[in-house]
Design a protein around this nucleic acid. Sequence first.
DNA 1: CAGTGGTCTAGACCACCAA
DNA 2: TGGTGGTCTAGACCACTGC
Lengths: 287, 287
Amino acid sequence: MSYIRYDLTFWGLCPGGRFAMNQTSPTSADNSDLPAASLAPPSSGGTPAFSPLYQQIKSLILQSLQSAEWRPGEAIPSEMDLAARFRVSQGTVRKAIDELAAENLLVRRQGKGTFVATHSEHLVEYRFLKLVPDNGDTQSEGPAQREIIDCKRLRASAEVARALSLRSGDSVLQVRRVLSFAGCPTILEDLWLPGTPFKGLTAERLSQYVGPMYALFETEFGVRMVRAEEKIRAVLPDAAQAGLLKIPKNTPLLSVERIAYTYNDVPMEIRRGLYLTDTHHYRNELN
Amino acid sequence: MSYIRYDLTFWGLCPGGRFAMNQTSPTSADNSDLPAASLAPPSSGGTPAFSPLYQQIKSLILQSLQSAEWRPGEAIPSEMDLAARFRVSQGTVRKAIDELAAENLLVRRQGKGTFVATHSEHLVEYRFLKLVPDNGDTQSEGPAQREIIDCKRLRASAEVARALSLRSGDSVLQVRRVLSFAGCPTILEDLWLPGTPFKGLTAERLSQYVGPMYALFETEFGVRMVRAEEKIRAVLPDAAQAGLLKIPKNTPLLSVERIAYTYNDVPMEIRRGLYLTDTHHYRNELN
DNA sequence: CAGTGGTCTAGACCACCAA
DNA sequence: TGGTGGTCTAGACCACTGC
């Protein structure tokens, strides 16, 4: 395991509370039986590297998520249990969980517990797909029909390698598929996955799986997508693309280039979608 | 003024704390000198209408923002002051402010205070504009050159009226402008504003003002945009649009239809942008 | 130095859920 | 009925800012 950023000791860099003490002269506090990674001394150069307790707790919870101590859909220990485990107050654990819930890594359910977020929850939950029908009625349209056009292993181009933090020439999986709504081809997607984490992924498994692709990644490969960035442009299709979407060549399309990340900002997927926007639109909310 | 939703009395609908009491038999608690709107009895039908104290505080703060008791850029009273004013603990005020800060209505600055968010802060802060240069360097590109093409008053079409919650035929202001980066026309915007709140807005004032348009709305008309929704499509320009952007007619463009809202989800602007995406892209983050 | 937001604790009670 | 998250309070101390 790797140590998290800043100190994990409870050695006097906490602003208040019962662990607070002189900032510049840490004493040997009662931290003999703290969780594993708590031995890095306070960083002694440059920035003070002050990290509040709840951030350290957040990092510890994050590590447990990463190491799959708790799996997607499962409940994590109660706030009181975690408070006892980390030897902090419930309020501190609560604040850590609050942030993780705000980032959609955890889901709180009153009376039941706190659960690891998952893409498999509601079968029609395409969390990262922001294309919606113009009438807004996602229900009547029903789930998308999916057709795998292609699925092959190849060597990463320089561009793909860079985006996925691989070496140029490493094995990657390339998938092309078409999504249709009400029989109408609407989305053409090309995606690239790093070969190693997705060993064993084939066109058959992709075709047979019911539910979002990210749910399959979770259950079959233990890869949970947590966050994504998209770059959107307007483009015209080439001949092959126009053919697959069954549209004239001069039809403008939305080009959506996505990079999806697992925990710790590790990129795990590149996806380039071409969206037909005559009956659908990309919906976004600004705050 | 209008009463906020649910009860504003502290009459026994608070789950815990010193005001907690039997939920079904509110007594005459010591609330003789509470803030103004605190006389609505607990709603006695349908849903229980339970609203936590901090939500009620949040609503009260929101009212003060709406009524311009504190103006954009100004500091609001300290947490302790607000706690005294509302007769709750600092922690409760803090939670209310936390949510408002998360919604970008307030900005916290440690050691200084809590401030009403504003669009005029950093001169180059186009908060709702997500178009960025492909190289990511927003600085080198510099601020956009703006040219007002047209600015006139007319009667609202049915469509515009509906989106702005006006009556068909009400006065609206229509503006067309072009934004250029490094001399290159990149964005063509048409926008519609309700006539009454923006009485006195002219092409001259738009041209002369330095800074984001939303900053002008704030300082000159007291209209603060808080939130927006966008619908994005790929389109081809018509002849006039192509001419203004100086592009061939078959250039695909991003069509970005935005509705911007003030406080309380009141729509105050429709904006339709055509974005040229050969050197720029629309950047979005998914969580 | 005083004032502000930020962190932490301890303890109480409430709403919701499942058994 | 007991356990979980949710709310509220009171009090302490810390970090940051500006006078």
